[in-house]
Design a protein around this nucleic acid. Structure first.
Length: 501
RNA sequence: GCCCCCAUGGUCUAGCGGUUAGGACACAGCCCUUUCAAGGCUAUAACUCGGGUUCGAGUCCCGAUGGGGGCACCA
């Protein structure tokens, strides 16, 4: 009901293609998507590739693939187009130059001819004297006409934003309120590099304005340059978007951001902060969305299970939390289990298929459909499916003889159990759960052994595993003939062991 | 060093001046049970510290401490 009153939001996710799409980026994109969908506005993907040196081959594609896999379809972007394109900053060079010129003409920016070497020297000297390390303002004093002539003559230059030298600047963050900074600590930031390409600060401001972005979600690492961004909009006479600085994700211990080495270490535990890895590790996009949505946002006391659709409905800027959050993979596992169990049978069957195939199993759809419900409550990630249920697709079940001996029994007793079970099963018209289970339970009662002992041996004989899906359901799927063969093999092994007793 | 942000159990969080400080994950125990799970129940566990304001502060203000982030012709 309020949605109709809310202005349609145009929200952008603006990653730079310098690496993998990770949890932090995914959460930003998720919030972007949620606000856009909730208000009936647009979700835009903009690639911030102004730094040509840091480009990583394939990164842009991975971002696009990742977003789609997560279900975060964008309405405008480099590969889908849109009315405000191009959506790659490297293709918008002239646009930025136009506005840089405008800033220079209006006295809000100036040309700077200082070399990187000189800058570095100044920085070091200032550091030694424990002064602010910002630009010393040498070119700020130059006569604009002179500067323009030097530029026209082809002299190498950058463009700097002219920061007010007195007073303070106040910018407003939606979740943190007003942030006021002394202008003296602000630098005359470079906004156009000597190669003519704009730096983030200018490019993002220009694009956000031109693309009519209403809300900017970004990481709180942008807080220090936040005043600059506000000032650029103001210098150009533009209304600022609503700024939302999201809290950072900390490593599981809560102490700092994850380092490169720690990211690699994580993989050993079956975790990763990269979306692509998570997909391969058998996590559901639904679970990722649910989990990261709750890291920095909350709904109410009791609901924590959310589908994407739920989130679109329930998301609110008001409930965003400014404090940093430690990544908790254990909770992620919990959410993944929840979402696996929420899947329909056919859906689950389809999703586990690639994991069987990649393990070399010839997994057919019909069988997959049958085993899906038997494993649904038992697996935490999709990639556990093959190790848990691979025995459905192979006849190479080779349990070790000793593993066929039930707890508290010897080989002779265990062999007799198998023999009796075999006799019961052979006598049955079929091996359906309803047919096989009652007589087998009767056998347990009459034999004096425990259910655990009898079914334990059968489980090992039939599945080759100590842990498996429910026994009778598994037997039905495997089929009578194959079950009998596996039982007979087990009997043979046990008898040979019994002979040695 | 300078600047900025943050602060409720181990972790994610609810709380928006008066609550037995609520929930979730994890952990422990119990129930269910042919394994592993799932599910149900129970338990342990928190307002960083110090000053104010107020009849009354986890909640408002100031300071300290701690944690995080930033100080590039990267984003």
């Amino acid at each position: 009901m309020t949605a109709a009153l809310v202005k349609l939001a145009r929200v952008r996710f603006a990653p730079s293609p310098t690496g993998h799409l990770h949890l932090g980026g995914a959460r930003t994109a998720l919030y972007d998507y949620l606000l856009a969908r909730q208000t009936g506005g647009q979700f835009i993907l903009r690639i911030e590739d102004t730094d040509r040196k840091r480009l990583v081959e394939g990164a842009e594609q991975e971002i696009m693939d990742g977003l789609r896999w997560l279900g975060l379809e964008y309405d405008e972007g480099p590969d889908v187009g849109g009315p405000f394109g191009p959506y790659r900053q490297s293709e918008r060079k002239e646009i930025y130059q136009h506005y840089a010129k405008e800033l220079i003409d209006s006295g809000h920016a100036y040309y700077c001819f200082c070399t990187p070497e000189r800058l570095e020297k100044v920085r070091q000297e200032r550091q030694k004297r424990k002064e602010l390390t910002g630009y010393d303002g040498t070119c700020r004093m130059l006569d604009p006409d002179d500067s323009a002539r030097r530029v026209a003559a082809g002299e190498k230059h950058v463009v700097r934003f002219k920061m007010p030298q007195e007073g303070s600047t106040t910018v407003t963050d939606l979740i943190r309120g007003d942030i006021t900074v002394d202008n003296r600590v602000l630098d005359d930031y470079i906004i156009v590099k000597s190669d003519g390409l704009a730096l983030y600060h200018l490019a993002a401001a220009v694009d956000d304005h031109l693309m009519q972005i209403t809300h900017v979600f970004r990481g709180s690492e942008w807080l220090p340059t936040f005043p600059l961004h506000g000032l650029i909009h103001r210098a150009l006479g533009w209304e600022e978007p609503a700024w939302v600085h999201l809290s950072l994700f900390l490593k599981p211990s809560g102490k700092g951001k994850m380092s490169k080495r720690e990211k690699a270490e994580l993989m050993k535990d079956g975790y990763s902060i990269f979306i692509k890895d998570l997909q391969e590790l058998g996590y559901l996009p639904e679970a990722i969305n649910n989990w990261i949505a709750l890291m920095g946002w909350s709904y109410d006391d009791h609901t924590e299970f959310f589908t994407l659709k739920d989130l679109v409905e329930k998301f609110s800027l008001r409930k965003l939390n400014p404090s940093p959050a430690a990544i908790n993979f254990t909770k992620f596992d919990h959410f993944n289990g929840l979402h696996i169990r929420a899947l329909g049978t056919a859906d689950l069957a389809e999703r586990i298929k690639p994991f069987f195939v990649s393990r070399g199993y010839d997994a057919d759809d019909a069988t997959l459909l049958k085993i899906a419900p038997t494993i649904q409550e038992h697996i935490g990630t999709l990639d556990e499916a093959p190790e848990f249920a691979g025995f459905f697709f192979t006849d190479e079940i080779t349990p070790a003889a000793e593993d066929l001996i039930a707890k508290g029994l010897n080989a002779t007793e265990s062999a007799s159990i198998v023999k009796k079970s075999l006799a019961v099963l052979v006598s049955l018209p079929d091996i359906q759960v309803e047919t096989a289970e009652p007589p087998m339970r009767k056998l347990v009662e009459e034999s004096g052994f425990t259910a655990g002992q009898v079914f334990g041996i059968m489980r090992m004989a039939i599945t080759g595993q100590k842990v498996s899906p429910p026994l009778f359901e598994s037997m039905e799927i495997i089929g009578r003939d194959r079950v009998l063969v596996r039982l007979k093999n087990a009997l043979r092994q046990l008898e040979s062991l019994a002979g040695q007793e």
